[in-house]
Nucleic acid binder design. Structure first.
Length: 138
DNA sequence: GCCAACGTTGGC
DNA sequence: GCCAACGTTGGC
C-alpha cells in the first residue's frame, strides 16, 4: 500500500483539530494543484500518511488514514478539484522535524526536502519506515 | 503555444 | 518580514 504526506499550516488546520474530528474524520479539501490532485486520486481507503505542520512547527506530528476515496471538492467553484476524507490514527511519540529529516541522509530524496511547496506527496516504503522510527513508532 | 507578470507557499 | 521556487494567468 502506498503512503502519503499531507501538509497543513496549524493556523489553518492543525493535528489537534484532526484528532478532535475523531473516527468520522474530515475532508482534506482546498487542494488546488494538479500534481497534488493526481496523488489524491491515487489514494485508496486504508492507506496511511504523515500529517505535517508547515510554517509553524515544521514537523511530522501524526499518522492519518484515508477513509473515503477521491470525490469532488464542493469548496471548488470550478469543479476541477476533489478531496479525500482522512481520520487521525495516532500521534508520533515525538515530532519529527524538518531539520531532523534533512539531517538524515536516507531521507535526502523526500519530496518534502526537495519540493517544499507540494501539499500532498507520496512517501516511499523506506521513507515511511524511517520517519516512523524517528517518531518513536515501531 | 510561448512567455512575462503576478500571486502564493513556505523555509529561513 | 524577506525572498526563492513554483504554478497560473493572460496578452500576443
Amino acid at each position: 500500500m502506498a503512503h502519503w504526506l499531507y501538509k497543513s499550516e496549524p493556523s489553518t488546520w492543525s493535528w489537534d483539530q484532526q484528532v478532535a474530528a475523531g473516527p468520522a474524520g474530515t475532508h482534506w479539501n482546498g487542494v488546488r494543484n494538479h500534481v497534488a490532485k493526481k496523488h489524491l486520486m491515487a489514494m485508496e481507503v486504508g492507506e496511511q500518511g504523515f500529517f505535517y505542520h508547515s510554517n509553524e512547527g515544521k514537523a511530522v506530528v501524526g499518522i492519518v488514514e484515508v477513509i473515503r476515496p477521491y470525490y469532488p471538492d464542493d469548496s471548488d467553484p470550478t469543479g476541477r478539484f476533489g478531496m479525500v476524507d482522512l481520520r487521525a490514527v495516532a500521534p508520533l511519540a515525538r515530532a519529527v522535524t524538518l531539520e531532523a529529516i534533512k539531517a538524515e541522509p536516507r531521507l535526502a530524496a523526500m519530496i518534502l526536502v526537495n519540493n517544499s511547496r507540494l501539499s500532498v506527496q507520496p512517501v516511499s516504503d523506506d521513507e515511511w519506515a524511517i520517519v516512523r522510527a524517528m517518531g518513536g513508532l515501531c
